[in-house]
């Protein structure tokens, strides 16, 4: 067990190293990418400011609390762009072109390899920007946070990352059966946009539909601003474990039905 963990940690380090080498070819891009990502973050803050220009709170969330939520959204979005988006798009291509064969013959876990081989490192700037926004919200609103709340925040954030991973993985695995699924990721990204704002702005049937997206950002942020119910934590943890297990099972199931493209 310990040896396996060490092996995969070493592999992961190796993935990061090759991605750094790749990225170093485009050094000038890095600077402009960082600049763009800061600019886009600033614009999304302005958007929230516009809403609060007319209202003291939105669905019982104050400006600073929404800033924290936006920070969580930004950080999660950064995670998606950091490892999910680049790997999942390649997975679809691997299946379509049959190059998945090469991965299956490697002596590593194919799901691990397909999930983490390509990392867009500069996207970590988005993650950092998101956390900076969380910090700003806490500081500006002088919101006191206990150690327990920090713990819950970190726990729920990681849970959200896990749920996103499982969701995305399940979505992309459709390509084992249907060829064109790139658009599903676009659809997912658009739906994820609904998580930019507190869950409490949605009502009725809409809330039910958007609930899975909205709780990904609302719950971690709620942990910091003391709006969290204890059942929320349990729901998130249960969801994450259930979905990770299903994703793993689905992967094995899909592989059994994989017939390669060329044969």
């Amino acid at each position: 067990m310990w040896r396996a963990v060490k092996k995969y940690a070493r592999l992961f380090r190796e993935f990061i190293r090759t991605c750094i080498v790749e990225e170093m070819e485009y050094r000038a891009h890095f600077v402009s990418n960082v600049f763009m990502s800061m600019l886009l973050l600033a614009l999304s803050v302005l958007t929230v400011q516009l809403y609060f220009y007319r209202a003291p709170s939105i669905g019982n969330w104050t400006f600073d609390q929404v800033m924290i939520l936006l920070g969580v959204f930004q950080a999660l979005q950064g995670c998606i762009d950091f490892y999910l988006q680049p790997n999942m798009n390649r997975l679809v291509q691997h299946i379509r072109k049959g190059t998945l064969d090469y991965i299956l013959t490697k002596p590593v876990d194919s799901m691990f390899f397909c999930s983490f081989r390509h990392l867009v490192l500069w996207r970590l700037v988005d993650v950092a920007g998101g956390f900076a926004l969380v910090g700003y919200g806490l500081w500006h609103g002088s919101i006191p946070v206990t150690v327990w709340q920090w713990f819950l925040f970190v726990l729920l954030f990681l849970t959200a990352v896990a749920i996103l991973y499982a969701l995305w993985m399940a979505m992309m695995m459709f390509s084992f059966w249907a060829v064109k699924v790139d658009n599903l990721s676009y659809l997912f990204q658009s739906l994820f946009e609904t998580a930019r704002v507190p869950m409490s702005v949605y009502r009725g049937i809409v809330l039910v539909v958007l609930m899975p997206m909205a709780c990904l950002t609302t719950f971690p942020a709620a942990a910091l601003v003391n709006k969290l119910h204890s059942q929320d934590v349990l729901i998130m943890l249960g969801l994450a474990v259930g979905m990770l297990v299903s994703a793993r099972w689905l992967w094995n199931y899909a592989l059994r039905h994989y017939t390669s493209a060329s044969s």
Binding site: Y51, R54, A55, S57, I58, G59, K180, N183, L184, Y186, L187, Q189, S190, L191, E193, T194, R196, V197, S200, V201, Y202, V206
Partner: peptide, 26 residues
């Protein structure tokens, strides 16, 4: 694909609508 692109593009105005409805109710 075209229909998926269209549905995806309807989400953003929808979010704004939800926010402004909340604000106007408040």
């Amino acid at each position: 694909e075209s229909i998926i692109w269209m549905i995806g593009a309807l989400v953003q105005p929808f979010v704004s609508m939800a926010i402004w409805l909340t604000i106007s109710i408040q």
